[in-house]
């Protein structure tokens, strides 16, 4: 589904990704974990087109998407939910969710409203408080709205950047359920998570990143049991698959 090959990317004079290889299978939940500054979020930003790759390729279903603008990537069915501040606080819940369909806005109100109703069944908040300003929602509620917005396009793949960041345990449970619901509807999930246990407990496949490249990859279970996992986090020497630049 997603094939990433030898991906390099960064800001200014700094390369954050130094040859990342990643494969995501259709219909699975995938989790990238790793210490701070490993480049986890940068991978997502490069896929969603916020950041242009410097080398390497990103393909979704065989179509090359590296370097395309975000709108083109949305059209290819890839939607990202950002780490923080994803919502537009001065728009209402409903307007925020509808913004998810911005690139297909010419298809008309009717289709939008229909899709909104469908999503309201999965995310009750959409039906309960459609005209509330997003700025007045709690952290967990904001995440719900962000998820619903991502689902407006009925995407093939949803990228989640630390969905649990700063959330309390109740919201955590709701987030987990929502991720499972989205995945149950056939959406492929690629998430980045700092909360390793949360991420690995949900995912089928996991990738451990360190210093801009992939250190370990495999089934989530194997990764959780891998004795090297903690070494990566504590900064000890890690078995690293050397990237091909």
């Amino acid at each position: 589904m997603i094939h990433i090959d030898g991906l390099w990317a960064g800001y200014g004079g700094l390369d954050i990704l130094r040859g990342v290889d990643l494969k995501v299978e259709q219909g699975t939940i995938n989790c990238i974990v790793g210490p701070n500054g490993a480049g986890k979020s940068t991978v997502l930003k490069t896929i969603s087109g916020i950041l242009a790759p410097r080398a390497g390729s990103i393909a979704v279903d065989g179509v090359q998407l590296g370097g395309e603008p975000p709108a083109a990537i949305l059209r290819a069915g890839v939607v990202q939910v950002p780490q923080r501040h994803g919502l537009f606080t001065k728009l209402t819940v409903r307007e925020n969710v509808l913004m998810g369909a911005y690139i297909i806005r010419r298809r008309g109100r009717k289709q939008m409203d229909g899709r909104y109703e469908e999503l309201a069944e999965i995310f009750p908040l959409l039906a309960e408080r459609p005209h509330v300003l997003a700025g007045s929602l709690s952290g967990g509620q904001r995440r719900m709205v962000e998820f619903a917005r991502a689902m407006m396009l009925d995407p093939k793949i949803v990228l989640l950047d630390e969905p649990t960041l700063g959330l309390d345990p109740i919201s955590l449970a709701i987030i987990r359920d929502s991720i499972l619901v989205m995945n149950g509807a056939g959406t492929t999930i690629l998430m980045v998570e700092q909360n390793v246990r949360f991420g690995l407990s949900l995912a089928h496949h996991a990738t451990v990143m360190s210093a801009g490249s992939v250190a370990l990859a495999g089934s989530a279970q194997d990764i959780a049991d891998n004795p090297h996992l903690m070494d990566v986090f504590f900064g000890a020497a890690s078995p690293r698959t050397e990237p091909a630049a």
Binding site: I170, L172, R197, H204, Q221, A224
Partner: peptide, 16 residues
């Protein structure tokens, strides 16, 4: 009720 809820964060890793 207000906070901890179903404490997934501290739960041991589950297998899928």
């Amino acid at each position: 009720d207000a906070y901890l809820g179903d404490d997934v964060a501290l739960a041991p890793a589950e297998v899928h």
